[in-house]
Amino acid sequence: MLSDDELALLQAIQGSGSLTRAAARLGKAPSTVSHAARQLEARFDALLFDRRRYRLQLTPAGRLLAEEAGRLALDVSRLTRRVKQVAHGWEDRLWIVTDELLEYELLLPVIRSFDVLDSGVALRVTHEVLGGTWEALLDGRADLVIGATNEPPSMPRLQWFELGVIEWVFAVSPRHPLAKVTEPLQQEQLLPYRAVVVGDSSRAARHRGYGVLGGQATLAVPTMRAKMLSQREGLGIGWLPRERVAPWLRSGALVEKKMAERREPNTLYVGWRGDHQGRALTWWVEQLRQPRLAKRLTQGVAVPP
């Protein structure tokens, strides 16, 4: 490992190409810089400086030493900051998993507020679908889950609270055959038509799906927005978040159909492991408990009319 003075010497010579200019940059006499350069070569038993030309340059070995020493110095600096960060109660990293029902853009103001704390905590935000959200917490692929559906699973030291509820509407394109059918619709009337579903991302448990009948054809899509767009285009039918598609219902881009069996609202949850709670996780949990943010997250982003 190079000392700070040795690294500064290499960088000064690399940047100036002159012993005199390097000495001036370092605030030292040229003879002192020359002596330090020879000591460095003796230490590594390698020719680090090319003195054969008018310009003093680093040899390939010298450039390698300068580049790697600079990288190591940065790594040590980052490690020092991270050690101090963890020693003061901040996590090294916080992995947040949201259910796909929640729009990522709604978290942007929260992330911006978290950045103001200048904690140094690295955030990682990913999303899962249905059973995959709780599963991420169970498997250690998440420190905090936001918007998980269904009741919290059995898990040691699991902590959770209700974030809010999502209301659903059964909607089809005005061009779809069901758009003109007399209401309320019975379940068996849906069977001939393809349902659009967001694929469950659970890796272990049996995949779940809402509003799909046995034997019914399905179109599995990656996101709720993809499901909304698919149904708007008449590619299938299904339940959609009422708040998010409200503009399309008002404009006629989607048609609400009353069902004989209505779908109950979904309760969304926030969950985390109580034995892994640092300052960053505590801060996020406190923010998510605020009613205004919880309402914004569960209502979602309405699509353009």
Results as ranks from 00 to 15, higher is better:
109 P>T: 10
110 V>W: 04
110 V>G: 00
110 V>T: 12
111 I>S: 04
112 R>D: 13
113 S>C: 12
114 F>W: 11
115 D>G: 07
118 D>C: 09
118 D>Q: 15
119 S>P: 06
120 G>Q: 01
121 V>T: 15
121 V>C: 08
122 A>I: 10
122 A>S: 06
123 L>F: 09
123 L>R: 12
124 R>P: 01
125 V>D: 00
126 T>H: 14
127 H>G: 05
128 E>C: 13
129 V>I: 14
129 V>L: 05
130 L>G: 00
130 L>Y: 14
130 L>M: 12
131 G>C: 14
132 G>T: 08
134 W>Y: 04
134 W>F: 10
135 E>Y: 00
137 L>M: 03
137 L>G: 01
138 L>K: 10
139 D>H: 11
139 D>L: 15
140 G>T: 04
140 G>N: 03
140 G>S: 03
141 R>K: 10
143 D>P: 02
143 D>R: 03
145 V>C: 01
147 G>I: 03
147 G>C: 03
147 G>N: 02
150 N>R: 15
150 N>L: 12
151 E>L: 12
151 E>G: 00
152 P>L: 02
153 P>M: 04
155 M>A: 07
156 P>M: 05
156 P>V: 02
157 R>I: 03
157 R>C: 02
157 R>W: 05
161 F>R: 02
165 V>L: 02
166 I>Q: 11
166 I>N: 01
167 E>H: 13
170 F>W: 04
171 A>W: 09
171 A>M: 11
172 V>D: 09
172 V>W: 02
173 S>E: 03
173 S>Y: 00
177 P>Y: 05
177 P>F: 00
177 P>D: 04
178 L>D: 05
178 L>C: 09
179 A>K: 09
179 A>G: 06
180 K>D: 08
180 K>F: 06
182 T>A: 15
182 T>E: 15
183 E>W: 00
183 E>H: 04
183 E>L: 01
184 P>Q: 10
185 L>D: 09
185 L>M: 07
188 E>V: 01
188 E>I: 00
188 E>A: 07
189 Q>R: 05
189 Q>P: 01
189 Q>E: 13
191 L>E: 00
191 L>K: 10
193 Y>L: 02
194 R>T: 15
194 R>K: 13
195 A>L: 08
195 A>M: 07
198 V>G: 06
198 V>L: 09
200 D>C: 14
200 D>P: 06
201 S>Y: 09
202 S>W: 09
203 R>Q: 14
203 R>G: 09
203 R>L: 11
204 A>L: 12
205 A>R: 15
206 R>C: 12
207 H>T: 05
208 R>F: 14
208 R>N: 12
208 R>W: 14
209 G>K: 11
210 Y>W: 12
210 Y>L: 11
211 G>L: 13
212 V>T: 06
213 L>W: 01
214 G>L: 11
216 Q>K: 11
217 A>W: 00
217 A>P: 08
219 L>K: 08
219 L>M: 13
219 L>C: 07
220 A>Y: 03
220 A>R: 14
221 V>G: 00
225 R>M: 08
225 R>T: 08
